[in-house]
């Protein structure tokens, strides 16, 4: 059942992404309405699909490469929709929806079978650790989009080559503010995700820190965002520099999220397909 819903989600997200991209070109209010409707419907089906999967599997469905990207996409779209209804920056959707679509496509490439949960994962720490980390990642995805938009808009203004993006994208101040907000929410989530992970590791593997590939990459990511936060607060980093950091940071997030599990091996690798 959850698989069927998942397929519906895939269709809605792809259609929504297409609509958001055509909104970027055409700028007709009706297109943005359709796009938002697609994404909202997709999100509802997605919620149902994840709930069903939870009931079918009997554990929080975030343990393999089918479940995890899908859950991250769900978190990204959820946070984005809240943001769109609050701040009305529709053009943001044109940047965020492709990311969610890619994640869902990655997800659909992996086996959807429900296998037995590795004993080490049978713990109440699983949902706490992973959900915290994933929501942090989702918020960094928003910061990544704001960063891309910032670089485009800044380039237009700085180089004095005013193109159509100049009219469509929000102001530099707004984009930089989003970067700032995302950092102040995403960083604590990432930190908490790592702390809970290390407590769990103490119970499961016997040590708080074991230099596992995922741990190393997460630490790298954490240092990147910590540097940005420090720069923002104490040195006055902002604008372009902060945007570049958010973009690089998100690549690190994506690598420790997907790359580690598909390319490297370590304690966090439960899923090998």
């Amino acid at each position: 059942m959850s698989i069927l819903f998942f397929k519906i989600v895939l269709v809605f997200y792809l259609a929504g992404t297409f609509a958001y991209l055509s909104y970027l070109i055409k700028q007709r209010p009706i297109i943005s309405t359709v796009a938002t409707a697609m994404l909202c419907s997709g999100f509802l089906f997605h919620t149902v699909s994840i709930t069903l999967r939870y009931m079918e599997a009997g554990y929080t469905p975030i343990t393999n490469l089918y479940e995890a990207p899908s859950f991250l996409a769900w978190a990204i779209i959820g946070i984005y929709l809240i943001m769109q209804f609050r701040y009305k920056i529709t053009v943001f959707g044109s940047f965020i929806s492709p990311i969610a679509s890619i994640l869902i496509l990655v997800s659909s490439a992996f086996s959807k079978e429900i296998g037995p949960l590795p004993p080490v994962l049978k713990s109440f720490w699983l949902p706490i650790h992973v959900v915290l980390a994933f929501f942090g990642d989702a918020i960094f995805a928003l910061a990544f989009c704001a960063g891309i938009m910032y670089l485009i808009q800044e380039h237009q203004i700085k180089s004095k080559k005013i193109g159509s993006f100049y009219y469509r994208l929000p102001s530099l101040k707004v984009l930089d503010d989003i970067n700032h907000y995302c950092l102040t929410i995403g960083f604590p989530l990432l930190t908490l995700g790592m702390i809970t992970g290390s407590i769990w590791a103490r119970h499961a593997w016997g040590s708080f820190w074991s230099w596992d590939a995922k741990e190393i990459w997460s630490l790298l990511t954490w240092i990147l965002y910590a540097a940005l936060l420090h720069g923002r607060i104490n040195i006055g980093w902002r604008g372009r520099r902060a945007a570049v950091f958010a973009i690089v940071g998100f690549f690190a997030v994506m690598f420790s999220f997907l790359g580690v599990n598909t390319m490297l091996s370590g304690l966090h690798t439960y899923d090998r397909y």
Binding site: Q153, I157, Y166, P170, S171, L172, K173, V174
Partner: peptide
Amino acid sequence: ELAKKIFAT
């Protein structure tokens, strides 16, 4: 308009 694209307000 340019100032607004930089400072928002």
